Simulated assay, not measured.
Amino acid sequence: MSDDEHEPQPQPQVQPQVKPEVEVEAEQAPSRTEQVAALRPAYQDDLADGLDRFFEPPRTSCPWCGSVRLETRLRTTDLLQHKPGRFVLDRCQDCRHTFQNPRLNGAGLEFYYRDFYDGLGEKQLGNTFASRTKMYEQRARALLPFDDAPKTWLDVGTGHGHFCEAARGVHSGTTFDGLDFTDGAELAERAGRVERGYRGSFTELAPELAARYDVVSMFHYLEHSTEPPLELEAARQAIRPGGHLVIEVPDPDSRYARLLGRWWLPWLQPQHLHFVPVANLRQRLTDLGFTVVLEQHAEPHDPVDLLAATWLALDNTAPRDNLPWLPHPPNALRRTLRGALLLAGVPALILGTLLDRFAVRPVSHRLGVSNAYRLVARRD
């Protein structure tokens, strides 16, 4: 900027304008009730053909190790969106891998993801993710002992890029790119949270990204993938030799998974397709030519288990909210009953929050209830 730009400039003469008698009101965004009403016909059409078309045939063997020794671990429903359907998680008795069986196919994934991260759910989820800056910074700091100045970092499953925006405060000299199957990566690029936003499948884009990155991160991404082993191979392809892979996933060995049953939030059915025990992931990374240099359980624990379980139980006991996949909106009586029940549950929600944050969090790993684990692995 030149010095001239700091000098006061002559102001142009402005002609007085006549104010119109009637001002045009700014166009209002549709209310949630209007959005739900507009979406209802399409959802009812989707459901008219039944739910079987959303699922693949059931597997008879473990997708991780191939064993045929399977057992049912959990049966549940969609506890967050309340879309219709029943979902089963099976566990391999040999390698202990837990997976959705039968698994959603492409049409099923589209149906159950719709209006969760986008549409009806976009604003709420966006606000939630944007408010987690401290957690994102902690994730970024996990790499510091092994590489305190990476030049390039690809965040896979980046959503709207909020992790990259926060991580830039820890790694100020790093160029962050994001990849996501949705348009979130493109939105993140337009918002300046990532330098480049790739939209698409990581396994398909990996050849284009070969050996381009010092770091690839997958934070709560692998459990959403239909083929986790292929995602790990794609990560190896995208990372330069000597670079690092940072992974964080739900821990299926958490005691909360057993104690809270279907009310354990990380089950997140039907979106979470795979739950990989830490020993399995370590071995697969070793087989791919990585060396695991860090394993954390206490640090990635998100202290929300009791609060979330309480909320899920209350929300599922109360009459349903107005949702487009339900045939009709609730009447006044059901809306009143729902509000009264949720209000009555506020003390339980407060208690759950206090226990999560102050009683359990300091000793979560000692109690074996950490709900996630994190690995940092170096590509050799």
Results as ranks from 00 to 15, higher is better:
112 Y>P: 00
177 D>P: 07
237 Q>C: 08
4 D>N: 13
289 G>R: 09
327 P>Q: 10
262 R>P: 00
155 D>Y: 05
336 T>D: 01
370 S>W: 01
240 R>P: 07
187 L>R: 15
230 L>M: 11
169 G>N: 15
343 L>N: 10
35 Q>L: 13
6 H>M: 12
40 R>P: 07
84 P>K: 02
117 Y>M: 01
2 S>R: 11
65 C>W: 07
123 K>R: 15
13 Q>L: 08
63 P>C: 13
11 Q>P: 02
258 R>V: 14
283 Q>S: 11
361 R>C: 03
40 R>I: 08
356 D>C: 06
4 D>A: 13
11 Q>N: 10
352 G>K: 02
278 V>K: 13
37 A>P: 00
372 A>D: 14
122 E>A: 15
105 N>W: 05
226 T>D: 13
3 D>F: 09
85 G>S: 05
320 R>H: 15
95 C>D: 05
326 L>C: 02
56 E>Y: 02
170 V>G: 12
72 T>W: 01
337 L>R: 07
85 G>R: 01
216 V>K: 08
10 P>S: 12
206 A>Q: 06
112 Y>R: 10
9 Q>R: 07
284 R>F: 03
56 E>Q: 15
57 P>A: 09
319 P>V: 01
46 D>K: 05
211 A>L: 12
260 L>M: 14
20 P>V: 13
374 R>H: 06
71 E>K: 14
359 A>F: 04
311 W>R: 05
251 D>S: 11
155 D>M: 06
364 S>A: 15
363 V>W: 07
76 T>P: 01
28 Q>P: 06
46 D>I: 14
205 L>P: 13
244 H>S: 05
179 L>E: 11
217 S>Y: 03
346 V>T: 08
24 V>Q: 07
115 D>T: 11
287 D>H: 06
91 R>G: 14
184 G>R: 03
71 E>W: 05
188 A>E: 07
12 P>W: 09
123 K>M: 02
247 I>Q: 06
115 D>Y: 09
363 V>G: 06
47 L>N: 00
335 R>Y: 03
19 K>A: 09
241 P>T: 12
93 Q>R: 09
59 R>H: 11
109 L>T: 05
42 A>K: 04
249 V>K: 00
367 L>D: 04
70 L>G: 12
17 Q>I: 12
251 D>T: 09
327 P>T: 04
293 V>L: 07
173 G>A: 05
337 L>G: 02
360 V>I: 15
66 G>I: 10
212 R>M: 13
376 V>Q: 08
295 E>K: 08
88 V>F: 02
